Computed example of a mutant assay.
Amino acid sequence: MINPSAGAINIDFHVNGKSYSMQVEPFKTILEVLRDDLGLTGAKKGCDDGNCGACTVIMDGKAVKACSLLIGQARGKKITTIEGLEDENGLHPLQKAFIDRFAIQCGFCTPGMIMTAKAILDANPNATEEDIREGMHGNICRCTGYVKIVEAVEAARDQMNR
């Protein structure tokens, strides 16, 4: 059991290209720090045990479940959240494809889906439908049948490979 009276720890990490140095309670998750301390609410608290994928962010190039990692595990890491995808050119191709392909229903799972899809396409720019479906297996959507989500990822893949 973690002792909440253990005191704060110093943590240095990067989020969406910005450096942070802060003191936080060691029992806080990355998700809690992102949402509560940094005000980045795109990653959602769904199941709170790493099964639904709503909290997915990219840490040092890999999709991770932010609800299941303690903030100390982010020390020195580079984290990208859904808020960090848009740039001076506008929405990321994945964000645009999800909108254009109607891959969003209630939207709760969407940030995690997009971040997982980004990690898939970053690792394999030519990911097949099977690669995408396999890579997305840790993300749950209660509204769609996943068809539109996969179509959106494929459309973004094609756009990004032009």
Rank of each mutant, 00 (worst) to 15 (best):
K118D: 06
L94G: 09
I140S: 01
Q23V: 10
P125R: 05
K44R: 14
V147M: 03
C143E: 02
N51V: 08
A97L: 08
D131I: 10
T128D: 04
F13N: 10
C141P: 03
K45W: 02
E25Y: 14
T41M: 12
S5A: 14
Q95W: 11
R142L: 09
L94V: 02
D158Q: 11
G39S: 15
D48Q: 08
C47K: 07
E88I: 12
V33L: 10
S5L: 15
A119N: 07
T81P: 07
M113Y: 06
N16T: 11
L40R: 10
T29G: 05
K77L: 13
G145F: 08
V153K: 05
C52N: 09
E83W: 12
L94T: 06
D48T: 07
D60E: 13
A103N: 06
V15S: 03
F27T: 07
G42M: 03
D49G: 09
G84N: 06
F108V: 00
R133I: 07
M1K: 14
E151S: 02
N89K: 15
Q95C: 01
E154N: 10
G72A: 13
G7V: 12
A152S: 03
L70H: 04
G50P: 01
K28Y: 02
H14T: 14
N126L: 14
I11Y: 09
F27C: 03
P4A: 05
N161I: 08
V147K: 11
G90T: 08
K28H: 08
I9N: 01
G61C: 09
R162V: 08
M113L: 15
N126P: 05
M1Y: 14
N10L: 13
A117P: 02
G76S: 13
K77V: 04
V147F: 05
I58G: 04
L69K: 11
L38D: 00
A155H: 09
K148P: 03
G46I: 06
V153E: 04
L121E: 04
E134M: 12
V150F: 11
N126F: 15
L70G: 09
L38C: 04
N124S: 13
D122S: 14
I79P: 07
I71W: 01
A117F: 08
N3Y: 15
S21N: 13
L69C: 07
V24G: 00
K148E: 05
M22L: 15
R75V: 07
F102W: 13
N10Y: 12
K45C: 07
